[in-house]
Computed example of a mutant assay.
Amino acid sequence: MRSIYRLLLLISLLSSSVAYGQISEDPEERRDQGQSPLKSQTPEGQPLPFKDRLRFGLGIPSLQIGNPFSIGISPIVGYQVSEHFVVGISVGYIYTRQKLPYYIPATINQLSGRAFGMYEFIPGILPNLYLHGELDQRSYTQKIDGQANSFTGSGTATLVGLTYAQPIGRLFSANISALYNLSYSNYSNTSQSLYGNSPLVIRIQFF
């Protein structure tokens, strides 16, 4: 009788191990079946752990050669809430140097922080196309050559638009966004200093 109990216990343990292996199956294996990898759950519908939904990447918020010269970097951390919904945060730094004869000689340092959300709204028709909304907070310090004082400014912008994401892996893609700055003002020098001379923002990011 004890042998039978031991056999039943062994079968039970093996069955549990197989079931756990199925639940923990890598969603990337769906590629072998001609399907897209799952982003937030296993093929059996079980939610993936928090760490398996994190997305890390980088954006280049500014790159301009000439006068003015400008370059920036923006690390990104995203979280795959569901198969079609992503949220994230990002911080950024932009360095700008402008010279005569077209600009007042100055150095501008700009810091930013933003929170965003992306929702894939018609995956059956246009997969990887997302509605995109974000809140962007920025501040800058401008130092004009030959002047002792620095000029500072800050502002917050709400941006909405679309993002197309070209998948590179299960949780990594190249993203191009076309956003409209709802907070843009033709009459605000601070707004134009922070976000440019147009309410339209084009951005390329990898995450």
Score class of each variant (00 low, 15 high):
residue 37 P to D: 02
residue 38 L to F: 00
residue 39 K to W: 04
residue 41 Q to M: 10
residue 41 Q to T: 08
residue 42 T to V: 05
residue 43 P to I: 05
residue 44 E to Q: 09
residue 44 E to M: 11
residue 45 G to E: 05
residue 46 Q to F: 13
residue 46 Q to K: 14
residue 46 Q to R: 13
residue 46 Q to P: 01
residue 47 P to C: 09
residue 47 P to G: 07
residue 49 P to Q: 04
residue 49 P to K: 03
residue 51 K to F: 08
residue 51 K to W: 04
residue 52 D to M: 04
residue 52 D to G: 08
residue 53 R to D: 01
residue 53 R to S: 04
residue 54 L to I: 12
residue 55 R to C: 02
residue 55 R to M: 04
residue 55 R to L: 03
residue 57 G to Q: 00
residue 57 G to Y: 01
residue 57 G to I: 02
residue 57 G to F: 01
residue 57 G to W: 00
residue 58 L to C: 05
residue 58 L to H: 06
residue 61 P to T: 06
residue 61 P to F: 07
residue 62 S to C: 01
residue 64 Q to Y: 07
residue 64 Q to H: 09
residue 64 Q to F: 05
residue 65 I to V: 14
residue 65 I to N: 09
residue 66 G to P: 04
residue 66 G to N: 10
residue 67 N to L: 01
residue 68 P to E: 02
residue 68 P to V: 01
residue 72 G to M: 08
residue 72 G to H: 05
residue 73 I to T: 05
residue 73 I to A: 12
residue 74 S to P: 12
residue 74 S to Q: 15
residue 75 P to R: 03
residue 76 I to F: 00
residue 77 V to A: 03
residue 77 V to L: 04
residue 79 Y to W: 09
residue 79 Y to P: 02
residue 79 Y to V: 06
residue 79 Y to Q: 06
residue 81 V to G: 01
residue 81 V to Q: 03
residue 82 S to A: 08
residue 84 H to E: 00
residue 84 H to D: 05
residue 84 H to W: 13
residue 86 V to S: 04
residue 86 V to M: 07
residue 88 G to F: 11
residue 89 I to K: 12
residue 89 I to R: 12
residue 89 I to Q: 13
residue 89 I to V: 14
residue 89 I to N: 08
residue 90 S to D: 02
residue 90 S to N: 04
residue 92 G to F: 10
residue 93 Y to L: 05
residue 95 Y to I: 03
residue 96 T to E: 14
residue 96 T to L: 15
residue 98 Q to D: 08
residue 98 Q to M: 13
residue 99 K to I: 09
residue 100 L to H: 09
residue 101 P to N: 15
residue 102 Y to G: 04
residue 103 Y to I: 03
residue 103 Y to A: 04
residue 104 I to N: 10
residue 105 P to E: 01
residue 107 T to P: 06
residue 107 T to V: 09
residue 109 N to Q: 15
residue 109 N to H: 15
residue 110 Q to R: 14
residue 111 L to A: 14
residue 111 L to I: 07
residue 111 L to N: 12
residue 113 G to W: 10
residue 115 A to P: 11
residue 117 G to W: 10
residue 121 F to N: 07
residue 121 F to A: 14
residue 121 F to G: 07
residue 122 I to A: 15
residue 122 I to Q: 10
residue 123 P to W: 14
residue 123 P to I: 01
residue 123 P to D: 05
residue 125 I to M: 14
residue 126 L to E: 00
residue 127 P to C: 08
residue 128 N to Q: 11
residue 128 N to L: 09
residue 128 N to A: 12
residue 129 L to K: 12
residue 129 L to R: 12
residue 131 L to S: 13
residue 131 L to K: 10
residue 132 H to M: 04
residue 133 G to I: 06
residue 133 G to M: 11
residue 134 E to D: 14
residue 135 L to C: 14
residue 135 L to W: 15
residue 136 D to A: 06
residue 136 D to W: 15
residue 137 Q to H: 14
residue 138 R to A: 11
residue 138 R to Y: 14
residue 139 S to I: 04
residue 140 Y to I: 01
residue 142 Q to P: 01
residue 142 Q to S: 12
residue 143 K to R: 09
residue 144 I to Y: 03
residue 146 G to Y: 00
residue 146 G to H: 02
residue 147 Q to F: 03
residue 147 Q to T: 06
residue 147 Q to L: 13
residue 147 Q to R: 13
residue 147 Q to V: 00
residue 148 A to T: 11
residue 148 A to H: 11
residue 148 A to Y: 10
residue 149 N to G: 12
